[in-house]
Design a protein around this nucleic acid. Structure first.
Lengths: 230, 230
DNA sequence: AGACGTAGTTGTCATGGCGACCAGAAGCGA
DNA sequence: TCGCTTCTGGTCGCCATGACAACTACGTCT
């Protein structure tokens, strides 16, 4: 009946999305890490690691992210927990998967780190463990969430034009959006507020800059949003 | 860096919803179990237990559910994983929470079990650990999900009238729905298909019986739906 | 048997969100 | 100055949804 006692190792892994320019437009990318030991030695996998003895799960996700890739995400959210008994040949492992977003400038830092590679989401396959499925699920959920929650702002800076925000949505959804309709939808939702600033230096009419509105009483009580990198 | 090794006990707990008549209409209830040891000895808590060494997480949820309440759910879905380091005074515990639905006839079996009590969701408070929050989150998610997925059918039998299905939705959402509009929405969604049968024996016009349509390519790849109780 | 009450079912209409598309505004570069 | 591009606001039509009226079909009551 009652089992009790430590029976499993608990690990966290994170699917991190960011936007990187590719050919003409921005595309969603995620970092993968080359494994340096069994199982799946040499294969690419999601960054992650074991939880510390006195460490919260989300903290462990952030820490392992920094250790393996150097990235500090602007948004972290729990995705799913995997616990199939046969997941790993080296003993019982329960993996808590997190989903995260990083801003593009932060993403550039990874270039210096060895054994880490950015891959476009469309080409992310052949990963270790069941990470292919995990990525597919995280992507599905991000696309769904972008429709009703303002998660996209975590891929941008403090202020942004609605054109930039639209670019982000287009990259996440993988299709183009009508600028006029997008503007109406976003403004009406109250998720952004206009500033008095305009973005100058562009080649055409300078767009007004907007700022994200704090969500207030959000949906799920357990979403964790990290502050910007210190 | 690498910690490794078993550092945590992994438990599962389940929020189970069912419909029970209360005063005039159906109301959402959930079972709580009286704890018989520390921590929180004597307090009411969600049913759960430790995972087995070779047991999948969802299987552990079903097993502990049977052991503590005798219930076999018709629908099981992973909800969230809690892992705050200070959750339990007796050592590091990571709790994977599941959400489940049971049909009303099955729910009646619990009456025979000691130390288990049905409480209306509106009165579920003062539970052990952080279970109050867990229940609130599960309820929020069930209400959200009933809007876009046909989870409500898992609270009914093989066939049902649209009036019965509407009652379920009303009980979950806590408000009345227009019968005509509800019918159109559900039929148009393709989530149910009409049978040739009609429900006789009622006091009024016999309603047509419907059957739930299998969801086919569902949303999340990791939703687990249990078969009906054997 | 016939009237009546109630839930099931169909129909109508107004509203609002959203996509397609048009048009003016505003800056830069040639 | 002209032309190009993007920003920004406007119009139109479609469709989903909610409010509500009306009809149907059965059990029940007299």
């Amino acid at each position: 009946m009652t089992h009790g006692g430590p029976v499993a190792s608990v690990a966290v892994s994170t699917v991190i999305f960011t936007l990187l320019p590719r050919s003409d437009a921005l595309h969603l990318h995620l970092p993968v890490v080359r494994r340096t030991r069994d199982p799946f030695d040499g294969a690419w996998a999601l960054p992650g690691g074991w939880i510390g003895a006195d460490e919260d799960l989300a903290d462990a996700a952030r820490r392992t992210l920094v250790e393996t890739t150097g990235l500090r995400p602007s948004y972290v959210e729990q995705l799913y927990t995997f616990g199939r008994a046969d997941r790993s040949p080296t003993g019982r492992v329960v993996s808590v998967i997190y989903s995260a977003l990083v801003r593009s400038p932060e993403a550039a830092r990874v270039a210096e780190v060895h054994n880490v590679r950015w891959v476009p989401v469309a080409e992310a396959s052949g990963l270790a463990f069941d990470h292919d499925e995990v990525v597919a699920y995280a992507l599905w959920r991000l696309r769904a969430k972008v429709g009703y929650a303002q998660v996209a702002v975590h891929l941008l800076g403090e202020t942004f034009s609605l054109g930039q925000l639209r670019e982000v949505h287009e990259a996440v959804l993988g299709r183009e959006l009508d600028p006029a309709n997008f503007r109406r939808r976003v403004v009406a939702s109250g998720a952004v507020e206009a500033t008095d600033e305009h973005l100058t230096g562009g080649r055409h009419r300078p767009p007004r800059l907007y700022r994200a509105v704090v969500p207030e009483g959000a949906a799920g009580p357990f979403e964790t949003t990290a502050g910007p990198a210190a």
